[in-house]
Design a binder for these strands. Structure first.
Length: 900
RNA sequence: GCCGGGGUGGCGAAAUGGCAGACGCAACGGACUUAAAAUCCGUUUUCGCGAAAGCGGAGUGCGGGUUCGAGUCCCGCCAUCGGCACCA
């Protein structure tokens, strides 16, 4: 379906490519590093980062440019404000889709990846983003991933010293098992194996028992895998969120994912043996109510304690559980299942024999893989106890009075419902009467004294499963010899994967690289590690590489890192008043600025994956002295999702995806940018509307026609209505108000209201004839970050006409000779607060909260004067007639409220 | 079940505790045009009375509260979207 070519309201199809060419040829948005030509050390830095895209075959969709436009506006604005702005873009190009597509088509992933990148880049450039393309990075480039491998070696060569609470070189470790403490280590634990994808996955990549990519079932099986010890940083990853300027919701998401819980480990002796089974509980105060114990089916002690009679049943249950995928295990979550082992444990506080069961509601991976069950005060234990008729003993009362008479005799009657809240201990010997928090502390003290337990903290966070059985990823810089692993040296990097024709998954956990027999052999005795790193590896540090992308000696040069990631405090007085003006609103924040990326914009979907992994790597690098700040991203903003016009998610399935290329072709890149920002608040989900784009396109066309008009020959010339005249007062007022508001709104990321204000200004100018050139210039200045092509073109046209020194410039003249200065290099305009002060103020006058009349008063009228005038207003008299005035509230500069 | 974000016209949305609905879309009316498109100028929360100017009432998911004054603050609900979900 071809829509008939619409007549363009202005020639954006020519001027947009023109300005994109100019920016590229003149490298307008290149940000030099310290020490490089053109670098100005007097200016403060500002680092604005986008989450770099995975260059898929489908190309850009409108969700991408939403966040990118926001950061682009900030970039252009901060430049006009005199900052050295770092605003880079790159490609997160390793990953499953590229490889799967390659397998399907038989083309090498490097080829399709290069094509996709070229396509993405062209699409981004058509929208006119002010990226410094000299800093482009690509995670699949050996010059890049060589340093990803290098960082891995730093992790491999480090351990987390609990005494100093930070990572240190493995050389400071004095124990005898260094391979058990490294930040990168090998583990044989059960992992998430996805047969359909032919790879293992991290916990974060498994959703409801299915792979995040493709939705294939995932099962547990034990495999030898590389792990990263992110759990060592669990506490710091929680604590150090505090100083970050992130949305509270995202912080909470991370905290919940890390899942800290305080409690105690309690040791139970297995009856008639010497075995001790430790359990973790957050409610040690309920120890007297433990009526049975449950082990995870995979728990190693099950085999040792199971009795002859129960052996068959236990074996059967364990096999059944092992066969179950995580998906099935979760689906059956409602119905509890389990088997008695025949063994008993001794409750350390009262010597009671309690039965030991196995059940799959207890997870091997959390705590000790064993629990004490307190059915009266835990929903899950309650359900289980009811199903298998196990005793239920109440030991916490919601009210203090009930507990006192109970003494320490066990309660005979079972409670009618499960109570999980806090209260007062009952039937709990020495704890009786204590409120829950004190009971916890008391029992923990007693257990510690008796050597039967201790207070402890558990985290839900697991170590990061870091290897994948794929071809299209970073190879590990590791070789194996005689069953043990060894790091390659830094000068052996990058380790590149061999060219292979057949890189299909083997269908077994054996990685595809194991088929490259020549490559595999490192030396006569040593062979290479054949796993590759997950896609997240490259994105864990790309923001650091941007600072110094061509450095061949280091992953990032020290000086570049200190400058761009440093903690130079940004001046917050950017409220639009010129520098000389008195600014009373200095930044009064007292919390320390910790440095890093000044603004990071991206989607919420990375709340617990990329953003957690990157923080972990950054902290490790910081501990080891490679980066200067403890956190990578000081300020984070999530853009909301762009929905289809029907309010649904955009998806190929529904055929409701909007392609930015189409919007650019039909309405212009500037219209796309402005519409994306005008739709609503940045962080909110909002539906796409084609008529909405048209409205914004109309606004831009109105701006065009403020400056340009068509002559008889059909050429666009500067409108004769534009004159070098003094601004009339009404125009001056809206001009200064616009400069103020747009500046403030950009700082606050309220782009929608900034655009609304510029529309107001434009509407005011549309009705004006003659039109003051100074007002037009101000409009172009403030609109430039939003609609850079249009404003550059109009600025140039005006400068050509009015600049005294300008030589006659013909159409075909080369761009870089005698061309007027670019708008992009103009400073942000100043506003004059004095113009905004009104001489007279119109006061609404309310009677009992309802507006009844208005009065106009001088701006410095005394309160008594205002009150008198308000009481004398005609409508007010009508509404107060026959009633006595009880009170008059005068809010100077605002309103008057009369209470009768 | 737990945690989080938002519920404001026909629609997207604005509103430091101070005139609810800025700005835009859609709709309607008018100007220009042979005509259409484009453009420009109006009207547009809703109900009642009025020919009209206007007058009066109601109104920010629901129910309470604080306040001279609440979309905004507090308490209790209701739907809705997103995240987590046997984590002991």
């Amino acid at each position: 379906m071809s829509t008939p070519e619409r007549r363009k309201p202005y020639p954006f199809d020519q001027l947009e490519p023109k300005w994109q060419r100019v920016w590229d040829e003149r490298q307008t948005f290149h940000a030099p590093n310290p020490g490089e030509p053109g670098f100005d050390p007097a200016q403060p830095k500002y680092y604005v980062l986008d989450m770099f895209p995975y260059p898929s075959g489908a190309g850009l969709h409108v969700g991408h440019p939403e966040g990118y436009t926001a950061t682009d506006i900030i970039t252009r604005y901060k430049r006009m404000r005199g900052f050295n702005v770092l605003h880079p873009m790159g490609w997160d190009a390793f990953g499953l889709p590229a490889e799967q597509y390659a397998i399907k088509t038989g083309h090498h992933p490097a080829m399709t990846t290069a094509q996709n990148i070229a396509n993405f880049k062209a699409q981004l450039q058509r929208i006119g983003f002010a990226y410094d393309w000299q800093r482009e990075v690509n995670t699949t480039d050996p010059g890049y991933y060589r340093w990803t491998q290098w960082i891995f070696l730093q992790l491999y060569g480090a351990w987390f010293n609990p005494a100093t609470n930070r990572a240190e070189p493995i050389s400071t470790y004095t124990g005898d098992a260094p391979d058990h403490v490294r930040l990168a280590y090998v583990s044989e634990a059960p992992v998430n194996w996805c047969p359909a994808l032919g790879t293992v996955l991290a916990n974060e990549e498994v959703i409801d028992g299915k792979s995040e990519v493709g939705g294939h079932p995932v099962e547990r099986r034990p495999l030898r895998q590389w792990m990263l010890r992110i759990t060592a940083y669990a506490q710091r990853l929680i604590d150090e969120l505090d100083g970050l300027d992130w949305p509270e919701g995202i912080k909470l998401l991370q905290k919940n994912w890390i899942g800290r819980s305080e409690g105690a480990e309690v040791k139970f002796k297995v009856a008639d043996t010497e075995e001790m089974i430790p359990v973790f509980t957050t409610r040690p105060d309920t120890l007297y109510g433990a009526t049975y114990m449950v082990l995870a089916p995979e728990h190693r002690l099950v085999e040792e304690i199971v009795t002859e009679e129960q052996l068959a049943a236990v074996e059967e249950y364990r096999e059944k559980t092992a066969r179950k995928s995580d998906l099935e295990r979760t689906e059956l979550a409602k119905e509890k299942s389990g088997v008695f082992t025949g063994a008993f444990a001794i409750n350390p506080v009262n010597g009671e024999r309690i039965p030991i069961w196995i059940a799959d509601y207890v997870l091997l991976g959390y705590g000790t893989g064993a629990i004490m069950a307190v059915p009266a005060h835990d929903e899950r234990d309650w359900e289980f106890a009811r199903k298998f008729a196990l005793p239920i003993r109440e030991v916490v009362s919601p009210t203090p009075t009930l507990g006192l008479g109970g003494g320490s005799s066990p309660c005979e009657a079972e409670p009618l419902e499960c109570f999980v809240g806090e209260g007062y201990a009952i039937h709990s010997g020495p704890l009786d009467g204590l409120p829950t928090s004190e009971a916890k502390a008391e029992i923990t003290r007693r257990l510690e004294a008796a050597g039967l337990g201790h207070g402890t903290i558990n985290f839900k966070l697991r170590d990061w499963l870091f290897s994948r059985q794929r071809y299209w990823g970073e190879p590990f810089p590791i070789v194996w010899e005689g069953g043990s692993h060894r790091a390659l040296t830094a000068d052996e990097l990058p380790v590149q994967a061999p060219e292979m024709d057949d890189f299909k998954p083997t269908g077994t956990p054996e990685p595809p690289l194991s088929k490259a027999t020549d490559w595999l052999r490192y030396s006569a005795a040593a062979t290479r590690e054949t796993n590759t790193m997950p896609q997240w590896a490259g994105s864990c540090w790309y923001y650091l590489r941007y600072c110094d992308p061509r450095n061949a000696e280091r992953f990032v040069g020290a000086e570049a890192e200190r400058y761009w990631m440093g903690s130079v405090r940004e001046s917050r007085s950017g409220d639009g008043a010129s520098a000389g003006q008195l600014s009373t609103e200095r930044d009064s924040r007292t919390d320390p600025i910790r440095g890093g990326v000044d603004l990071y914009v991206g989607g919420t979907e990375h709340a617990v994956l990329h953003l957690l992994y990157a923080r972990f790597w950054h902290k490790a690098l910081h501990d080891l002295g490679h980066v200067s700040t403890p956190e990578p991203f000081q300020r984070l903003v999530n853009q909301g999702m762009i929905l289809a016009s029907d309010g649904q998610k955009m998806s190929k399935r529904w055929g409701n995806v909007v392609n930015p290329d189409d919007v650019v072709a039909e309405y212009s890149a500037d219209a796309l940018r402005c519409y994306l920002m005008f739709m609503g608040p940045l962080d909110q989900a909002k539906p796409w509307s084609t008529t909405g784009v048209e409205g914004v396109a109309r606004f831009l066309a109105r701006v065009w026609r403020l400056v340009m008009e068509e002559n008889q020959a059909g050429e666009w010339i500067v409108s004769p209505a534009v004159h070098d005249i003094e601004c009339p007062r009404d125009i001056a007022k809206v001009m200064h108000a616009t400069i103020k508001k747009v500046g403030e709104d950009i700082e606050a990321l309220s782009f929608n209201t900034a655009i609304a204000q510029m529309m107001v200004f434009t509407n005011a100018l549309t009705g004006a004839n003659p039109r003051p050139r100074s007002a037009i210039r101000a409009l172009l200045n403030v609109l430039n970050p939003f609609a850079p092509h249009l404003t550059e073109e109009l600025w140039e046209a005006l400068e050509r006409k009015y600049s005294v020194s300008s030589v006659q410039c013909s159409e075909g003249a080369p761009l870089n000779t005698e061309s007027p200065p670019q708008l992009a290099h103009q400073p942000w305009p100043a506003y004059d607060p004095a113009v905004l002060i009104e001489d007279e103020i119109e006061y609404p006058v309310q009677v009992n909260g309802k507006v009844r009349d208005k009065i106009v008063m001088k701006k410095d009228a005394a309160t008594a004067e205002i009150e008198a005038a308000a009481l004398a207003a005609p409508k007010v008299l009508e509404h107060t007639a026959g009633r006595s005035v009880k009170k008059v509230v005068v809010v100077p500069g605002r309103l008057v409220n009369i209470v009768v």
